[in-house]
């Protein structure tokens, strides 16, 4: 499908530019070739991640936020990113890149819609967070167990349904009862939510999409670092 682009003839800057375009267009095979080509030239895994995949997904995330791209296109991009990450993840683990923070994430009880949650997971990983993905249909107990086990900085909860989003309040109330609400930053997201809802249930923030989730998480980590220091 790809027209005559010969990667070996491109400069590294041009390859990174191409990676951004190919992520935007959701071309997984091409991304794999470009990641391998870059690594073959001696680029560090975190450089490929940062200047290629994350830079590309930032454009995708911004255009999603601005209503230029929609979920199907973002899923395609995420699939391409995933293909690239599959190569980079083991290499990144070897090099022991420093984590920005850790996050427990999952859809709430009764809700099995995980497309948005999966996008957030990928974007957070790309941004340098360690993410513990609990999958779908999580009880308050499941979230809390994971938060304690991993000493997580952030809890991310997602719901697509108006009928399941009230469960987020149950989780937050349980955190309060256990006296651990202040230990964790609670971010909530999902199509039917808004800021007023997040405020009403006393979450720390509503994130309208994956890009906002990453920005918000980074911001809260700076505050936490500040508090801890």
């Amino acid at each position: 499908m790809s027209e005559e682009i010969i990667l070996s003839e491109l400069s590294q800057e041009e390859i990174y530019e191409l990676m951004k375009e190919d992520l935007y267009d959701g071309l997984a095979d091409e991304i794999v070739e470009e990641v391998n080509e870059s690594l073959g030239r001696g680029q560090q895994p975190y450089e490929v991640l940062t200047y290629g995949l994350v830079a590309g997904m930032e454009i995708v995330g911004n255009d999603f936020r601005d209503g230029i791209l929609f979920v199907p296109e973002v899923l395609m991009a995420a699939k391409a990113m995933k293909a690239g990450m599959a190569i980079l993840r083991p290499l990144l683990a070897e090099t022991g890149a420093e984590k920005i923070g850790s996050m427990v994430i999952g859809t709430v009880k009764g809700d099995i819609h995980d497309i948005g949650k999966n996008l957030v997971t990928m974007m957070m990983e790309g941004a340098g967070f360690e993410v513990f993905d609990l999958g779908i249909n999580n009880s308050a107990e499941a979230y809390i167990e994971a938060i304690e086990k991993h000493d997580a900085d952030i809890l991310g909860m997602s719901a697509l349904l108006t009928t399941t989003m009230p469960y987020m309040k149950v989780v937050i109330d349980t955190l309060k009862e256990k006296g651990i609400r202040k230990n964790v930053v609670v971010l909530v997201g999902g199509a039917p939510l808004n800021e007023a809802f997040a405020e009403a249930i006393e979450a720390d923030a509503y994130c309208r999409d994956a890009a906002v989730a990453v920005e918000t998480a980074k911001k809260f980590m700076q505050i936490r670092r500040g508090v801890k220091a």
Binding site: M1, E21, D25
Partner: peptide, 15 residues
């Protein structure tokens, strides 16, 4: 949704 994007997608990149 993935199939939809593939079926519908006009690409913007140089490929």
């Amino acid at each position: 949704l993935l199939r939809l994007a593939q079926a519908d997608g006009g690409r913007s990149g140089r490929r």
